[in-house]
Design a binder for these strands. Structure first.
Lengths: 127, 127
DNA sequence: CCGGATCCTGGTCGATACTG
DNA sequence: CAGTATCGACCAGGATCCGG
């Protein structure tokens, strides 16, 4: 019970709005996946086109704006190499890397409970 | 490193799409907050109007649909009391309650790193 | 008191075309 | 190669009204 204090405190203050803001940002269509992909890339670096291939189905526009947002929040560092043709690499920052830990817990939870969710949905939809 | 296996595996399979689906559902404007509020309510139960007061600013429509979605996923149980005026109570299921644990980690992380994010944004916006 | 039905608005995301 | 610009479809979500 001790362990859950932060959640219980959350609603008392404006911390709930912070959580909402955070989820609204990182909870978009591609951000989490992008961070995860960078995390598992050797060196935690990749260039634009590599990321586009890795995130199956992402449009060029969305990759750009997702990367900009992550850069703005300090999760990703952008490095431009003055070459022709241009090369741009994105690297996970220390802050971005620290995200892996809570996400790991979430992924674990999903892995354990996803079948329960699917079952609940199926039985709910029978009505 | 051992601890991070699930995240690294995630991208290999279709598990990434499961994570996306999950985040898309629970990552909406009110779901997480609603679960947290129920979790901290004595008995993990509350009626519709109590929830509406607790979630400052939520519209009646969004409270209804958010509750429906959570019920469909098996996080919340709905109980109708055949009275006049009607009374409806919502209760966190065991599955819903198990969500608290990973969310706790997330909240902890946000608490620790939110100031870093704000600083990163400020310095980014100076350009 | 609870919540369904409707209408409306802004924002998110994809497609496409075009630059340095 | 790595973007930017523009357009349009779609949907989350708020306001409001009504009904059991």
């Amino acid at each position: 019970m001790n362990q859950r204090r932060a959640v219980y405190l959350m609603c008392k203050s404006e911390e709930s709005s912070v959580v909402r803001q955070f989820l609204a940002r990182i909870g978009d269509k591609w951000s989490v996946l992008l961070v995860v992909i960078l995390a598992r890339t050797p060196g935690h670096r990749a260039r634009f086109s590599e990321l586009q291939r890795a995130l199956d189905g992402i449009s060029q526009r969305m990759l750009t704006t997702t990367l900009r947002n992550l850069e703005r929040d300090g999760f990703v560092r952008r490095e431009v190499f003055p070459e022709v043709p241009p090369r741009v690499e994105y690297e996970l920052t220390r802050l971005g890397h620290s995200l892996i830990d809570p996400m790991e817990h979430l992924v674990q939870w999903i892995g354990t409970h996803w079948s329960s969710i699917k079952k609940a949905r199926a039985s709910f939809d029978d009505r």
